[in-house]
Write a protein that binds this DNA or RNA. Structure first.
Lengths: 332, 332
DNA sequence: TTGAAAGCGCTAACAA
DNA sequence: TTGTTAGCGCTTTCAA
């Protein structure tokens, strides 16, 4: 392309060397002010844009972050992506987004891909049956920092940002206790995920420490349809629960569908509380659902700041938490 | 990095020249099968990964597409992104996703950024008050093809993929007519958007051409809360509609909220039909909502295929459409 | 304060 | 069938 402006062209026009031009453009102290001025002016005029590939090749340092995520059609992940994207651009990085569909094989492909692309860093939410921790660790060896978010490995030697899951579950449990309920149905996600375990444990603990705690029924679920049916069944018992706790938005959707199909009223027949990643789903219903918010956006901001410390210096492994808080609807 | 495997290293180990190694790896016909084998085996063993920056620098051809989108926390755009991402990877490209928040200034920044990054092509959904068409055209001059999607310029000299909006509205209207309804409330989005105008026109046309068409009330809306209130008011009339048509998912959500708050049953008290970008929202309710699907995913697939023809050859400007179809729930 | 030159890892025209 | 060479656009060390 004869129409691309390069350092070479600029230096020829100005009758100086390429390296001088290069230095001038980045305010190198060695260069005289007059030269700097000349170069900068011409560059401006010609709309010079440094070729990022050349920079990356010679510095062997890219300005691309990888982001591995289970899905992109999910408000939680999109708000996380949103945050990371915005914050990354602020510091001059761009994002490549890879989606796993929770398939460990696809995840493995993505990890390799990021390595191949020499990304400057990687954000990852691992698949539930993650067999790829070694691959992730391999990146660390290539000097590619990895920040795990949301679903993180159960392992100490890695960077993790997640919700204070104990807190979210604790807040929800305490909110329920305050209302003097008799029988609670608590629906959690897959039992083998660490997030589930933490939330479950914290939730149970609150109930155990309370003297007159309501009766507690716990269910685990992993499939949308299945969830609705389980809940429906529970709600049809003679001895049916008066309160339902949902660990996630998706579970909430199933629960509400079950409730509607049985024509139960909220909170009269059944009270509802959920942990949610945004106000979107809880406010979809009438009355609006009481929820503990765990914001994907905040998590994203935190993840990026963790990444930047990794990129800048040789930091020890970090474990960071985002707090959550109760938002009251009229469903409890 | 002494631990990065390069062509140079491979060739040294094998005592051949770099170019021979390079050719062997890409099955160049000039190279003997024995050499090819040797090189490939060693490359495999060493887990050689070609450096993409070097390739891009020497071929001056990147494998990155840019994607400019109003927001990422929106199921329509995410399913579009989803499709483009998956399809792109299949053909060896990656995506950089840029979000405008419908702000023309941010859009301008993004366009420049894509140019600077030398993307191989750009997908763009323009901001409503787009003043940046010239900037987009500038990319064409740099040999960067642009595919506009969803919200596209009113201009002939550009590539466009969008929905056959007339069709979607027509299908919905015809579905309503079939059911012999008496009074229809049709809720459309902002009247100044071209998509609204097209859908409205098509919708009305069907009603006008039908002899015994139901009475038709049309409303425009642009704010969530506002929408719910308008609908609620309509549904409380003595002469209340027996059918409600929603132009978008967001309108559907408001409508359903209104219906629930008034304790009306679907379709007994009020029948519901919507145009929707995915099955997500229509299936959230019981009974499931009948909808005309305009799939973001399909649009993405189409956009990528349009892009690939642009990338491969000097194609004339294309204008492509995705069809829509009726998905029957039990709400009509 | 500036320039020359080597090198990042790869491609491709040309030579052998 | 293979090797040599120049070059992509930039950074950076060393020398002037």
């Amino acid at each position: 392309m004869s129409d691309t402006i390069t350092l070479k062209k600029i230096s020829q026009l100005l009758n100086i060397s390429i390296s001088t031009a290069s230095r001038a453009l980045k305010d190198h102290p060695d260069i005289s002010d007059t030269t700097k001025q000349k170069v900068k002016e011409l560059a401006e005029m010609l709309e010079y844009e440094p070729n990022p590939f050349a920079i990356q090749l010679s510095t062997s340092h890219s300005n691309i972050f990888g982001l591995i995520v289970p899905e992109v059609s999910n408000l939680f992940y999109t708000s996380f992506i949103d945050a990371v994207e915005v914050e990354s651009r602020k510091v001059g990085y761009t994002l490549i987004i890879l989606k796993t569909d929770d398939n460990p094989e696809i995840e493995a492909t993505h990890i390799k891909y990021c390595k191949k692309q020499r990304v400057a860093g990687l954000f990852a939410c691992i698949t539930p049956n993650a067999s790829n921790f070694d691959l992730f660790q391999g990146l660390n060896k290539s000097n590619i920092p990895v920040i795990f978010f949301d679903r993180v490995p159960d392992n100490d030697n890695c960077n993790r940002v997640c919700f204070a899951d104990e807190t979210a579950a604790t807040i929800a449990a305490e909110a329920i206790l305050k209302k003097n309920k008799k029988k609670v149905l608590a629906v959690f996600a897959e039992p083998n995920m660490s997030i589930t375990q933490k939330r479950l444990k914290a939730f149970q603990k609150v109930f155990q420490q309370h003297k007159k705690a309501p009766k507690l029924n716990i269910y685990h679920t992993n499939h949308y349809e299945n969830t609705k049916e389980i809940i429906k069944q529970q709600l049809q018992n003679d001895d049916r629960p008066d309160t339902i706790f949902c660990m996630t938005d998706i579970i909430l959707l199933s629960a509400m569908k079950a409730i509607h199909e049985l024509n139960l009223s909220v909170p009269g027949d059944i009270a509802v509380i959920t942990i949610s990643n945004s106000n979107f789903f809880p406010t979809l219903y009438t009355p609006e659902i009481t929820y503990v918010e765990t914001s994907g956006y905040k998590l994203g901001v935190l993840a990026l700041s963790a990444m930047m410390t990794c990129v800048k210096e040789d930091a020890p492994y970090q474990e960071l938490y985002v707090d959550s808080y109760l938002v009251e609807g009229q469903s409890l």
